[in-house]
Design a protein around this nucleic acid. Sequence first.
DNA 1: ATGGACATGTAATTTGTTACATGATTGC
DNA 2: GCAATCATGTAACAAATTACATGTCCAT
Lengths: 216, 216
Amino acid sequence: MSDLPELPPTSWAVLGCLGFDEELSGYDIKKWADWSIGHFYWSPSFSQVYSELKRLEKLGYATSRQYRDTGVRGRRVYQITDAGREAVRRWAIESAVEPPILKHGVMLRIWMGHLNDPEQLKQMVKDYIAQMDALNQQLVIDAGAAAEDPAWAFPRVTMNWAKRYYAAERELAEQLLAEIDEAHETLIKSSPDGTLPVHPGHWREVEAHVKGATGT
Amino acid sequence: MSDLPELPPTSWAVLGCLGFDEELSGYDIKKWADWSIGHFYWSPSFSQVYSELKRLEKLGYATSRQYRDTGVRGRRVYQITDAGREAVRRWAIESAVEPPILKHGVMLRIWMGHLNDPEQLKQMVKDYIAQMDALNQQLVIDAGAAAEDPAWAFPRVTMNWAKRYYAAERELAEQLLAEIDEAHETLIKSSPDGTLPVHPGHWREVEAHVKGATGT
DNA sequence: ATGGACATGTAATTTGTTACATGATTGC
DNA sequence: GCAATCATGTAACAAATTACATGTCCAT
């Protein structure tokens, strides 16, 4: 039982696509990722897919062959090997699960909300809610398409999760609207002229507090 | 009103830290990011913070000076300029908001859940729930530390959001537990020997369906 | 005076994107 | 025949992390 090589999750995602035992081209994988994995992990560029496939082939996790049939130019299709199937299976269950990576631009802007007018911030949140609705609509379409095949039972689980995720995200956003007003009021009460009531060095005390509490 | 330069959100986040009008060093910013922005956007490496600060200074958005006092070696502290404050203010409100970037390793593993035993998958989800609880606990500590200062009203909004986010994430995970069992049953019913019931080329039909429905 | 935490930074590497080139197929 | 789209790939670049080097402060 040899050790698994250190690969970024993206590599494993590509290998996972091949793990459904179909011969797939890079193009296929990109498209599939867009409408399935893309809702919770990954929507890579074509070029990254192609280079990941090369790496997987070099590792012996996939084989490729030139596909000729209807006369398509250089369509190269990949197939998972036994070693590849075993590796991705082990990765899925053995490797440590990191907390999700989240980069939430809306929250970043609210975090520095004192710089701007609260009405504009609220409009941004409303736009964001509309965006979530649109994503959810697209997901309903995508999930509907995958509804039949029993082999896709697990992808369907993740798509159901994504539906609930979009709904949760929407609710969280709606609660923000009131809190933005509250924060703004706190700010103008403590400093009616609009300047920030800065307490020099205060954040250092806070850091000390945090460290004390955790015991680091 | 000149155009804003194209900068990654990370740059704006650093500038946003300076936007609280305190002189901060790279080290300060990294620590602050860890316990505040880190809960929804960003937990960068020291080295990235340092290079972003250099970029911001080159752009005229910040100035720096060598800080000598208690005799610390090379402590360099940065301060935002008027141009910097105006730029980050405009960025926050003018630049398009992208959907959040999410990379959810647990869901990726469930997506390829047919490769593994459902009991192991469920254990992974349970571990994840515990992880969310731990993050939430840390957040309570961090947020408690920031509770007093009125200047931090908006950071507090984001921390409250993060608390609700962790709770929502926990609930979503709990619903997964039942769905994993369901998916597994669907799979063994359609193919009791454990091999995947693959329908060659079926995913292509699905892609066609998706495209047809969206009208792209 | 010495080990460890604090603090700053550079260099090398990896990950991932955008821009570009190019050929094949399909519909008009 | 020609434009649009499909499909594959390379090259250049940007973003971000890890590894490393180094100096300072503080407690013992």
